[in-house]
Write a protein that binds this DNA or RNA. Structure first.
Lengths: 115, 115
DNA sequence: ATCAATACCTATCAGTTCTAGGTATCGAGA
DNA sequence: TCTCGATACCTAGAACTGATAGGTATTGAT
């Protein structure tokens, strides 16, 4: 990151996880699948990516964890905290700003070579 | 990267540089400023980022370099090669796919928690 | 004479994602 | 019964890349 530059797509996993949790609690394995499914497999984050993100988010207080047994399977359900909601808003804004800025370059013809 | 996952925003600097050069040749310092200006300072890539990208692109044959003196200043002008144009198309597509996929998650309400 | 701007460069740090494993349970099918 | 795929969790280390922080040299303005 840096005060100057908004760490590009770094944080995309974080953004996706937070956004998914906004619709209700989910557990890790489910999140992994949801990301794969909802993006039409364009984005396919492995468990090795998602779990550490979840742990970091929990540690930072953005989400809360609650172990629960369902169908004889132990799952850890995560829920968005108020702090997490703020963080989500923040990241969503950043995402919009950055993609918008890049898009502007992609579309624009501002620059014209005068050699 | 990986066969499975399209290295997120990694490559944004590369994408921006290639796109700028599509409008005509430019030199490094100019590119740094163009990125800053055209993105309204949202994206501000330092010279330490841009120059290495230029060198890598030249090495891979995506752009060609030509040293020229202008106003007593030595500049290295870069121009897009056909290979670079292909690469640009490729990256632009990837960019659209990834941002589209993320957007889909950001907007969608597909997931509903049934607990 | 100094200092900001121009114009180039590289080495190293820092941060994240990806890979590649590992454990354990459940249910279906051979 | 035994196996194997799916479910569900986890971590360590590799790999990549952008960011930082320097460095050199010239021009032109104060």
């Amino acid at each position: 990151m840096a005060a100057t530059n908004p760490s590009f797509m770094n944080g995309v996993p974080e953004l996706l996880v937070l956004r998914l949790l906004r619709n209700g609690e989910m557990y890790g394995y489910q999140i992994v699948q949801a990301i794969r499914d909802e993006t039409g497999e364009v984005v396919n984050l492995g468990e090795g990516v998602v779990y550490p993100v979840l742990h970091a988010l929990e540690k930072s207080g953005a989400i809360t964890a609650q172990r629960r047994a369902v169908n004889g399977r132990s799952r850890i359900y995560y829920a968005l905290s108020p702090a997490g909601a703020s963080r989500l808003t923040e990241l969503t804004d950043l995402w919009a700003r950055v993609t918008g800025a890049v898009q502007q370059v992609l579309v624009g013809d501002a620059h014209v070579s005068l050699v």
